[in-house]
């Protein structure tokens, strides 16, 4: 059987908030395979951000195991985590998070720089990535000269350039109007069709519907995991819906 690319085995994450302990993720188990397009959906406080941080190797589980391509991330030190993020993950953020002082080309080159790719190859690959999002002609511009949608496309190029195993998009349309948001989602769909594994984190059902599979979280637990064309995917479970509070988003 094929090894899942992302495997959560009863992953829990606890936070200390003052005297109380908050359970942000409560024994979440899930598997995501290569080539999937998965949306992790949930309200604020559902644990989706915790999930995304763990998938993105920005955080490690308190208990349980997270295997990324078979490697146990929980056992890695900071340097190994940095390397995994660099090699296996491509981040797309809600706020784009481009570096304002760098040109678009330089921005896209950053992950390759940390990967130790030689300068010439780095430039070439970054140009190709910009080309693929249709912004190659603006490579010398700085992020503040672009519209939000364009900036997000640059950040997609940056996520792609290192040829990561997983593209992790955290509310990628959150700061965009619906039209440009739709464009960005189309790009993500396109990337998935080319064979990339895309994990989309969102609170918005209509955006989640772009994905083929939906994992719905509530109170740190998975309440639905299945295809996005099942109407049950968009039903909020339990009585605590929308009123969980406490746990960080």
């Amino acid at each position: 059987m094929e090894t899942p690319l992302i495997a959560f085995e009863e992953v829990s994450k606890l936070y200390h908030m003052g005297d109380s302990i908050v359970v942000a993720a409560d024994k979440i188990s899930m598997e995501i395979y290569r080539g999937e397009f998965v949306a992790i959906v949930g309200q604020s406080g559902s644990g989706k951000s915790t999930c995304m941080n763990i998938i993105g190797c920005l955080d490690v589980p308190t208990s349980g195991r997270y295997l990324l391509d078979g490697q146990d991330v929980g056992k890695m030190n900071k340097n190994q985590l940095a390397e995994i993020r660099n090699k296996m993950l491509g981040f797309i953020f809600q706020q784009y998070n481009l570096l304002p002082k760098l040109t678009l080309l330089e921005n896209v080159m950053v992950p390759l720089m940390y990967a130790g790719v030689p300068l010439r190859e780095r430039k070439q690959r970054a140009m190709d990535a910009l080309e693929s999002v249709g912004l190659a002609s603006k490579y010398k511009h700085r992020p503040n000269q672009l519209s939000g949608g364009q900036q997000q496309r640059v950040s997609i190029a940056r996520a792609l350039v290192g040829m990561p195993s997983v593209i992790l998009a955290d509310e990628p349309t959150g700061a965009l109007d619906s039209k440009t948001g739709r464009e960005v989602l189309n790009i993500l769909q396109g990337l998935n069709q080319q064979g990339n594994t895309v994990v989309l984190i969102t609170h918005d059902n209509s955006i989640a519907a772009t994905a083929k599979r939906i994992i719905r979280l509530e109170d740190g637990r998975v309440i639905y995991d299945g295809p996005s064309d099942d109407p049950k995917a968009f039903v909020r479970g339990g009585m605590a819906a929308g009123e969980t509070g406490g746990a960080p988003a």
Partner: peptide, 16 residues
């Protein structure tokens, strides 16, 4: 701080 966060997310090790 945010730039540092982004750089770390993109794979910068502490020593970089």
């Amino acid at each position: 701080t945010r730039e540092i966060g982004v750089r770390k997310a993109l794979g910068a090790k502490e020593r970089y």
